[in-house]
Design a protein around this nucleic acid. Structure first.
Lengths: 270, 270
DNA sequence: GTGAATGTTCCGCAATACGGAACGCGGGTT
DNA sequence: AACCCGCGTTCCGTATTGCGGAACATTCAC
């Protein structure tokens, strides 16, 4: 598994953070932060490791993790002395997915476009500074990595992320971009250029591109969308770069995806 | 949506419960209990409703929910004054799924059996007193409801649940059955009969049945399994009762599913 | 045996989460 | 309008509860 799935969207909750909010429950935030440490790359984590990652002192980690085990959100493996995610986390995700109705409406059309383009067509929403797939269908072509529902992609480098930003109200857009700039001041100028190109593209043509910018061999187009309940999200169609050339994305796939999204807007607006 | 998706596996956390455990973090448990209130049927819940469901007083619910919003696990809809699940819950579930390798190994064989039987083949693990699908493939026959990954099924009435119980060590088996009996004393005698039949079937033939016992028109066979990491789970093959007659389940599908699971045991044991 | 990891338990402390009461708000109903 | 009812939030005094340094076990490596 060469892909780095690590969740970079860390938030530290030092007890006396600026969140001097009397309405903020630290213990809850910390417990959830522990769960977030587990990612597809990091199956098993021990107390010390969790403590290092989150900055929470060991005894507290031990207590919180113990609680999470009792609740079924973590498993404890006595042989390793480590924790892994438990079955509890699954059903939460499912409850959320089943409440987003666009998925059912869009799936047939997505499937059709996937077959046509021999690529993957996905819908994503934003969590912290990543996009997360809530639906993804792929052509049954032999190649093509399976990035399933729930997988995370960076906001700044992908077509779906840029499209998402393009669909946001200015205020939220700025806020997210500000956070991005803080996280990676080094590369921000470069990232920013790509994002702003995306914003322009979406405004002018209704879709934006990422040609090998995230992973060398992957290209995609993205289109912003807001569902009937006002939830911002984005569609994308992406796959092997040698199949999805820039020309084809700009003149064929891009317009098709944009048209697909217009269709869905029409249907779900009723 | 006629199916009752409601999550019955409630746990109350009155502050001074028997959990006088100095190692138990109540605030965390309560916060997660709030998230659990949302199910595919219950998209939007307000403070009062959450308070009623969980027994947590309103101010505490307000505080905890506020915290969950800040963390991205809940959305707040000002127009309704209610909460819905946020994007944060998704990625947790995905991180867990991607760490269960049986899924990838088993999928092709599951697909094959699904086509052959014109039914759905699934893998499930247990969360509290429900089975939760971690993988599910279905034939592309026109009929067949889509129960995706993450959906919950009762332990006592389904083939997958009974098979799961059959695969557990005696102690855990007894513990779960005890909890089941407490939750529904009324029907326990009947449920128990079905479960014990399932245990016998699994011991004798390697699979168990549920013929219209959970939903009138749905029948299935189930087979217990334990993966390379010692995680107990169960396979099932189920679908329309008129296609999957008892005879066919007993003499064709059941043995085939049992054989499939033996294959997988062989592969993943390496 | 020593040393450096790990994870858990102890326990005194005070910060923290708690929850009853009160407040403000909107939307019915008479 | 005046009333009421249900909701959600804020207040604030309280003691509960979670906290974390220190000490204590274990295990591993060499």
């Amino acid at each position: 598994m060469a892909i780095d799935y690590t969740n970079n969207d860390v938030q530290q909750f030092g007890k006396g953070d600026e969140a001097k909010d009397r309405q903020f429950v630290t213990a809850l935030a910390r417990g959830l932060e522990l769960l977030r440490c587990f990612s597809p790359g990091e199956r098993y984590l021990g107390v010390a490791e969790l403590s290092r990652r989150t900055g929470i002192p060991k005894p507290s980690v031990s207590r919180l993790a113990g609680t999470l085990v009792k609740l079924g959100y973590l498993n404890f493996l006595p042989s390793l002395g480590k924790y892994s995610l438990g079955s509890g986390v699954l059903s939460l995700g499912y409850a959320m997915l089943s409440n987003i109705s666009v998925r059912q409406i869009a799936r047939p059309m997505m499937q059709e476009l996937a077959e046509y383009s021999q690529a993957s067509v996905s819908i994503g929403i934003c969590d912290r500074l990543s996009m997360v797939y809530i639906e993804s269908v792929r052509s049954n072509a032999p190649i093509g990595i399976r990035r399933g529902i729930g997988s995370r992609l960076p906001l700044a480098l992908t077509a779906i992320g840029r499209a998402y930003l393009a669909g946001l109200p200015k205020a939220e857009q700025d806020s997210l971009m500000h956070q991005l700039s803080l996280r990676d001041e080094q590369n921000w100028p470069r990232l920013r250029t790509g994002i702003e190109q995306g914003l322009r593209d979406c405004a002018e043509r209704g879709f934006c591109l990422s040609v090998g910018e995230w992973e060398r061999d992957v290209s995609a187009v993205g289109v912003p969308f807001t569902d009937g309940e006002g939830r911002p999200m984005a569609f994308s169609c992406g796959g092997a770069a040698f199949l999805l050339t820039r020309d084809r994305l700009e003149h064929d796939i891009g317009p098709r995806l944009a048209s697909l999204v217009r269709h869905i807007s029409g249907i779900s607006r009723i």
